[in-house]
């Protein structure tokens, strides 16, 4: 079952909320916001990070959305809005009156500010703290050594050195260190701090820990009433 919520619209006309399908945590949902008459006022994907969603264990925390609306906030607040899944048209949430959220809005004036606003890059390694299941799936599929090598490549941009590899593998095999704990240690290292690099977020194809989703299960055969009667 898809869970979703239209939270608010900001003064700048950005519709905020979140949506995810706990049964399909690896997929981002394509969404649209419709007026009562079916006019679409915003569209996009639910793939941004929010800490409260991570705490609630909803899609690793990466299922928020901020959609620029075609109408102003007052016009939106005066109407009933429907959040629908773009591919199926299924209504996920109906908001009779979207609250207006007052936030300070700054335009990005420098390249650094634009990069910092890029939602497809991590602002902090802590944004991956809710991805434990994702890392576990990677380890189950590729093995622990592959995870450690991938972690080194992802955070430090280099192959794992033999000493570091051996010590972290030992710690992780003993259960003394979690997969995210390893990423946090590498991101906290002097090497990373001296040469910080942008790390792709889980919504990026460059996110190395993404594993191929399992193929959908074949539908179960059920007998309808007629067959029962037969």
């Amino acid at each position: 079952m898809t869970l979703a919520h239209l939270d608010a619209v900001t003064q700048a006309g950005i519709i905020e909320g979140w949506a995810c399908d706990p049964q399909r945590p690896r997929e981002t949902l394509a969404l649209a916001v419709l007026l009562d008459d079916g006019t679409a006022v915003a569209a996009g994907r639910a793939e941004l990070f929010r800490e409260d969603l991570m705490d609630a264990q909803l899609r690793y925390g990466w299922c928020a959305f901020r959609l620029r609306a075609a109408l102003g906030p007052e016009a939106l607040a005066a109407q009933r809005l429907r959040l629908v899944e773009a591919t199926t048209g299924a209504v996920l949430h109906v908001q009779p009156q979207l609250p207006i959220r007052h936030v300070e809005h700054h335009d990005c004036e420098t390249v650094e500010a634009v990069v910092a606003e890029d939602p497809t890059m991590l602002r902090s390694i802590d944004q991956l703290a809710g991805c434990g299941d994702l890392f576990a799936a990677f380890i189950a599929q590729e093995g622990l050594p592959a995870f450690i090598r991938a972690a080194y490549g992802y955070v430090l941009g280099r192959p794992a050195d033999p000493v570091g590899f051996a010590s972290y593998e030992k710690l992780m095999r003993r259960g003394a260190l979690t997969p995210f704990g390893l990423l946090a240690i590498l991101a906290d290292s002097g090497e990373f701090r001296s040469r910080p690099r942008l790390l792709p977020s889980p919504v990026q194809p460059a996110f190395v820990f993404a594993t191929a989703a399992a193929p959908p299960a074949a539908p179960e055969l059920t007998l309808d009433d007629g067959a029962d009667a037969a």
Binding site: A129, G175, A176, L177, T178, G181, A184, I185
Partner: peptide, 13 residues
């Protein structure tokens, strides 16, 4: 969360 991903003895974890 301060403890969850720290290096801890396995039995303590």
């Amino acid at each position: 969360r301060c403890l969850r991903d720290a290096v801890l003895p396995p039995d303590l974890r």
